[in-house]
Amino acid sequence: MILTDTHTHLYSEAFDDDRETVIANAISKGVERFFIPAIDSTYTQRMLDLKQAYPKHMFLMMGLHPTHVKEDYKEELAHVEEMLQEHNFCAIGEIGIDLYWEKAFLTQQQDAFRYQIKLAKKYKLPIVIHCREAFDEIFEILEEEKGEALHGIFHCFTGTWEQAQKAISYNMKLGIGGVVTFKNGKIDKFLEKVDLSHIVLETDAPYLAPTPYRGKRNESAYLPKILEKLELIYRKDIAEIAEITTNNSKMVFGV
């Protein structure tokens, strides 16, 4: 049984003391494919080092995270395109709009999101969307950019059933992580109505650890806890869910 973590920040400082152990533990649990989202230029070398150390397991994205869109965002976007020209990446991500942590740079976030969607189309790559308290703003831009060339993942999907349907209509898979195990996570109330063909698994490690690890550092090795919750929701065998969600990730990323 091969599991795929479609969103994990394994280069994070949170893993500096035991990164090799964390990765080995995840692999021992069947998590063999790790998709690594970008944040900004300060993390690029860490990501490249991670890929070099685990070339068969790590797949890198490139992009500018919305909470890191500041006054210098155009310089950061130039770095994104430079990296796309120099290295192979599997997606543009994570990109989007975040109005929970930062409202002052909304215009810049919108501009950066549009620009990176255009980069994704130029390089024929999927996008991985970060959306927090910004579904309307995200959907407005996706409506402008929609088409066969636009596809990807709504990372850490925490919206409503209606928002799930809309995200899927834009050729997006839903990234399901630790939130589905939370008592107040809400998405478990309607997720069974979403066909498994639209679902991929993720941890967002080191953030959003699933129950019973909530509040602690998250790890890719905890992905089976999310899988166990989906087994209850979909009433399907764990191995079948693992196969379907991993195949979905292959469809998105092409690897």
Rank of each mutant, 00 (worst) to 15 (best):
R217S: 09
L191I: 11
V200R: 07
E228C: 00
D204M: 13
V180P: 00
N184C: 01
F182P: 04
L208I: 10
K186N: 14
I176F: 13
K183Y: 01
T211W: 02
N218L: 04
L191D: 07
S220V: 00
I199C: 14
I187S: 05
T203E: 06
K216H: 07
S197A: 15
D195R: 08
K186L: 14
T203C: 08
P224W: 11
L196A: 06
E202T: 07
K193H: 14
T211F: 09
P224T: 07
V180I: 15
K229N: 03
K216I: 02
K229Y: 06
H198G: 02
N218T: 06
K225T: 01
V180L: 10
F190D: 10
P206Q: 12
D195I: 03
K186E: 14
K229H: 01
V194E: 09
G215I: 10
F190R: 06
Y213C: 01
N218K: 05
L201W: 10
D188F: 09
I199M: 08
I176K: 03
Y207G: 02
K186S: 13
P206F: 13
S197F: 00
E219P: 11
N218D: 07
L201T: 14
T181A: 05
T203H: 12
R217H: 00
Y207Q: 04
I226P: 02
V200G: 04
E219G: 09
T203V: 12
P210R: 02
V179D: 01
L227R: 07
I187W: 04
A205L: 09
G215Q: 03
K186M: 10
V180F: 05
L230K: 06
T181N: 03
L208W: 14
D188W: 08
G175L: 07
T181Q: 01
P206D: 11
Y213G: 00
I226C: 05
I199R: 12
L223W: 11
Y207H: 11
L208A: 00
V194W: 06
L174K: 05
K216P: 03
R217M: 07
L191Y: 11
E192A: 14
L201M: 13
H198N: 15
N184P: 00
E202L: 12
A205S: 15
K225D: 13
V179C: 06
L223D: 08
V180Q: 04
K193E: 15
E228K: 05
I176D: 09
K189R: 14
V179T: 15
S197P: 00
L223P: 11
I226D: 08
T211K: 03
L208V: 03
